[in-house]
Design a binder for these strands. Structure first.
Lengths: 158, 158
DNA sequence: TGTTTTTTGCAAGTGATTTGCAAATCGCCC
DNA sequence: GGGCGATTTGCAAATCACTTGCAAAAAACA
């Protein structure tokens, strides 16, 4: 594994949440071109060391986000306000997908599932007005969702 | 509703599956600019008359696909070979999402779920070799650098 | 060490989508 | 039906994430 690829993987692994190529480039230890970051991410995904999904966000537009692929497949929530990711836990739709395969005859190789909305903090801050989620979550978990990078919010304003 | 918007909605409604902006532009009855198609799609989505999701496919790249929003939310499968969509039925993960909200404290406003793989026809044709059906860890859609340019899609000019 | 293969940096290219702006159309009043 | 301000459309140029050709640099190998 080359230095650049090693460094990219390291950034992914030290993050607690999905990172875009730009996030990786911003946090990488070695100096390297964005083309190299992209190529390294492709390489890692090809080798099964990372996985990714495409997500749209009003602030950052459409970007691909990467996660190291150590453990099992997980799903993520993306806050529309603070743009942090929240881990929704490991995949719980495998049996549903199998059922869908049986019903439709397709053979599923990959799937993508994510949710967006307001994280607990942002809802507390600004969501008092429109709290349409029905019922309060019984208990809020660790209040700190993990932050993608030093600048998880702005940086790409038109 | 203006003529252009009406025409765009009509295309979406007469299609049996998600359409990209390019698909809409190719099938629209009135002559209109692609900028207008995009603006109309945005308008329809804003008005709740359409919904969309972003999907990556090796042949068409990353595109947003639109569906009219008459009935309930549905999920789709995209064949990696023939690039057709297969309807996976209406949403069956609502209760799972509610559980995730309760567990994490987030408030989910939207979610995206889709699957990719081989449809039954393509699997029959070419999939005899690797027919691993349901046991794969079902994960990310790798962005492939090189594009196979055999174009099976109904209406997509190069 | 010299040679072959792979990777990287740089710069230019791509393709979907957006946007500024002027012309065309719409909505509405008279 | 004409006038007129508000909205929408067409066109062309711009964005933006991501890709790619190519030569230099680094790694693998003999």
């Amino acid at each position: 594994m080359t230095k650049a690829r090693e460094a990219v993987l390291e950034v992914l692994e030290s993050a607690k949440n999905p990172l875009s190529a730009a996030d990786v480039a911003a946090n990488i230890s070695t100096l390297c071109d964005t083309a190299t970051v992209y190529r390294s991410l492709h390489y890692l995904e090809e080798q099964g060391l990372a996985e990714s999904f495409v997500l749209y966000c009003t602030t950052h537009g459409t970007e691909r986000y990467y996660v190291p692929h150590n453990a099992e497949h997980r799903h993520w929530f993306h806050c529309e306000q603070c743009h942090r990711f929240v881990d929704l836990g490991c995949c719980r739709i495998e049996s549903l997908l199998e059922k869908m395969e049986a019903e439709t005859g397709v053979s599923i190789r990959t799937h993508t599932l994510y949710a967006t909305g307001l994280c607990s903090e942002c809802r507390a801050k600004t969501g008092a007005a429109n709290n349409s989620a029905g019922n309060e979550p019984a208990q809020s978990q660790a209040p700190t969702a993990f932050i993608a990078s030093s600048d998880h919010c702005q940086s790409r304003s038109g």
